[in-house]
């Protein structure tokens, strides 16, 4: 689904030229500072060290590796995604802060590659989360990785790389695909629906029969709010 059906419309703030300059500046900074979380699922991971170290040096583009999903901007999936792994990939993706981007490296993420016939491998990554960029190849060389990253940087700068919103706006679609794979009881500790509500990212596709199914069995995951609790009833002893 992703954003193919939607024609990307770049909404610029009208009127205040300072705000436009500011937005431009922020987009530029976003494109020049990318923290990668590489989820090394497969053989593609081996191409990343040369891309980072002295031969190709990602850091000159402002790209550096990070450790936890909270800190990262880019989720880099480097190879085939087994169904077990996919659960973790989805959790990791949901834990990242937006704007966030997903890059699928290697053919396996595009269509399952040589694992096409495997029962235990998710074939197309973009059925489960919006993917910004595929770098095909088995495996792509660091030059290709860097070229892909530069392409992503351009898209971020121009404001086109906003597929992360798609995950909120079409959550029902992604959740449906996830439920198809993991069963009806599928639930991550993250709560996308309240997040979409919190950030006002709700669209027609956010809710649907899949989210209904989720809400039926979802264990409550509201944040633990600070409270004095003096109005609570005395617990029975």
């Amino acid at each position: 689904m992703s954003s193919i059906k939607q024609i990307p419309v770049i909404t610029e703030r009208k009127g205040n030229p300072l705000a436009r300059v500011f937005d431009e500046f922020v987009r530029f900074c976003r494109s020049r500072s990318l923290f990668i979380l590489h989820y090394c699922t497969g053989c593609g991971a081996i191409e990343l060290p040369p891309a980072m170290t002295s031969r190709f040096d990602m850091e000159r583009l402002g790209i550096q590796p990070m450790v936890s999903p909270r800190q990262a901007d880019i989720l880099l999936i480097t190879g085939y995604v087994s169904i077990k792994t996919l659960k973790r990939v989805i959790l990791t993706y949901e834990q990242m802060g937006s704007p966030k981007y997903v890059i699928g490296i290697c053919s396996c993420t595009v269509n399952g590659g040589m694992y096409w016939q495997s029962y235990a491998t998710a074939k197309k990554l973009d059925e489960y989360m919006p993917v910004d960029l595929y770098i095909a190849g088995c495996m792509p060389r660091p030059e290709a990785v860097l070229a892909g990253l530069q392409k992503l940087m351009d898209r971020i700068h121009s404001g086109e790389a906003n597929s992360w919103e798609d995950y909120f706006r079409n959550y029902d679609y992604y959740l449906g695909n996830q439920q198809k794979l993991f069963g009806e009881n599928w639930q991550t500790p993250t709560d996308i629906i309240t997040e979409a509500k919190h950030y006002d990212l709700i669209d027609e596709g956010t809710f649907g029969k899949h989210t209904q199914l989720l809400e039926q069995h979802q264990k409550p995951l509201e944040a633990l709010d600070m409270r004095l609790g003096h109005d609570l009833k005395e617990p029975t002893e």
């Binding site: 922020v26 530029f28 900074c29 500072s33 402002g62 937006s98």
Partner: peptide
């Protein structure tokens, strides 16, 4: 860039 980007995160 890093500081501006981190402060401009939307979620």
């Amino acid at each position: 860039y890093d500081i501006v980007k981190l402060h401009s995160k939307q979620t």
